[in-house]
Amino acid sequence: MDSVRESLIVTESLKKDYVEGGVVVPAVRGIDLRIDPGEFTAIVGPSGSGKTTFLNLISGLDSPTEGKVWLRDHLISDLSGSELSDVRRDHIGFIFQAYNLIPVLTVKENIEYIMLLQGVPDRERAARVAAILKEIGMEGFERRFPPKISGGQQQRVAIARAMVSRPELILADEPTANLDSETGAELLDMMHDLNHRLGMTFLFSTHDKMVMERADRVITLHDGRVAEDEWRVPH
């Protein structure tokens, strides 16, 4: 288990079946993977290959039919709903394809939401929000509401929200899919930079070649299995 502790994520024989119309549909058919701290990894594959299900399973958003998932020392597959919430709050940041900021909260409030859940004191929260806004180049946007800023800006805020609580792992679902290529590239560079500087682990689900090109490791899923696991940089 020591090796488990060294890895950030470990999955063992991970399987997930869905029942649709009385028919069992296997979405993930036994994945054994290790994701180490600091990786910048893309999970790719055609639609229906199990990318989304895999990310749902490792983040505890869904429960496996068989197999185990560890996030550090937490056996994700055995935790209760509230425990999973706490693990996600403290260890995982999410970046969604459609940004998914809370529209009735300002930029500042969206970013500080997770810190509020964590009970971070007011002053520290304010300092961290200010710092991250500076980091993503959105100073002065604190009081704006998401519908009043552009898609690229919303995704920056979503990245800030995911990172401000300093999670070890950031799961990003098609983060560039709704952005033009220039904005997408800019955000990817920003995430890559944060990965290098802060050592945060990024795990992307993507079809985007730009993401694949920047990834240190590309895991290809096919029919719910790992078809290829390619390192682009020495590890």
Partner: peptide, 12 residues
Amino acid sequence: GVLRAVGTRPSG
């Protein structure tokens, strides 16, 4: 779903 994903407990 987003609120739950980012760490809001069911009670929240």
